[in-house]
Design a protein around this nucleic acid. Structure first.
Lengths: 164, 164
DNA sequence: ACAAGGTGGATGCATTAGGTCTATATTTTA
DNA sequence: TAAAATATAGACCTAATGCATCCACCTTGT
């Protein structure tokens, strides 16, 4: 009788989380992509987003909270409530989304400002390598907008479209 | 009288492993950097590497095993045994090192060949983004050689050098 | 008033990161 | 040949993390 039946189809076969973008970011991008394709300021309920993009319902609530806290979406509480983008879709980058739900992009602790991760940072030969790698990544992701990923139908809809 | 006293000075304050290069890779690069600065085919015992680069001794043994299995170092068993680079330092890339001790560089499961991580890959809007990001990263890391990171003295030695 | 929504937080579980230890096989050298 | 120093193989341990689920509460439209 309720929408809880389907859920994520993924197997538990997660291999490593090192150097991996997590599901949280995946889900966040999916959700925002869906919102990005709606009419301006259109409010969409979380159930709808979750269903169309196949995101675990309750988990997404937490994610949307993060996105709201970061100022990427606006939420409306109460009946007929839901979410809408708080900014122009073209102005929201994937890097921002990542940092909204995860943390500032950082390939190693050493690279975090004022973190002084290990006593050797003054003489470390690798720091500059990871720093540059991280810079490349950040620059690229900052250049990709949610607008460019807009998805009016949602994954489910488009997948079924292929089948028909 | 023994080398076991110091160990890693890092606090336990690891934050997240998502999108993080792990310590294993850090240690592997340190070890290879040290070997890269030795005379050609010079054999160095693991105790010495561990001491000079401040790597947990037993943990490093496991790492060296991976590096040997990947053909990056040659090992010599028995007394006076140890490790030496199996290839020219300039020909060993950081990407290879990463993949020797960790796994093939992959930002998301979806990107792994033939993994078919989720039912939506055919209609996914984000895959190409992560694919390109991963490509940039891989390309950059493939261009950095262990030779360019060679460290004759090791972190400890060079740090003390600064103090004097 | 009440139902449909978001908010905030407690809780849970499987896996991984990171590391230690021991037993064994191999080689040098005394 | 015995002993010492080394790598190898793998079992084992622990805290933290990833990925959720659930619930009690507060807001708002009808």
């Amino acid at each position: 009788m309720q929408a809880s039946a389907v859920n994520s189809v993924r197997t538990t076969a997660d291999r490593s989380s090192l150097m991996n973008i997590g599901r949280k970011v995946d889900y966040a991008v999916r959700a925002l992509s869906y919102l990005a394709a709606q009419p301006h300021l259109w409010v969409v309920g979380s159930k709808e987003i979750a269903r169309r993009q196949d995101i675990p319902t309750h988990y997404m609530s937490k994610i949307m909270k993060d996105l709201a806290a970061a100022g990427l979406v606006r939420s409306r509480v109460g009946r007929k409530g839901g979410f809408s983008l708080a900014r122009h879709p073209e102005s929201i980058s994937v890097k921002e989304v990542y940092e909204a739900v995860e943390r500032p992009l950082s390939l190693m602790e050493c690279l975090e400002k004022d973190h002084h991760c290990c006593p050797y940072d003054a003489v470390c030969t690798q720091i500059s390598v990871w720093e540059r790698a991280q810079g490349l990544l950040a620059e690229y992701l900052a250049g990709i907008s949610i607008g460019s990923l807009a998805d009016r139908e949602g994954l489910k809809g488009r997948l079924n479209g292929l089948h028909s």
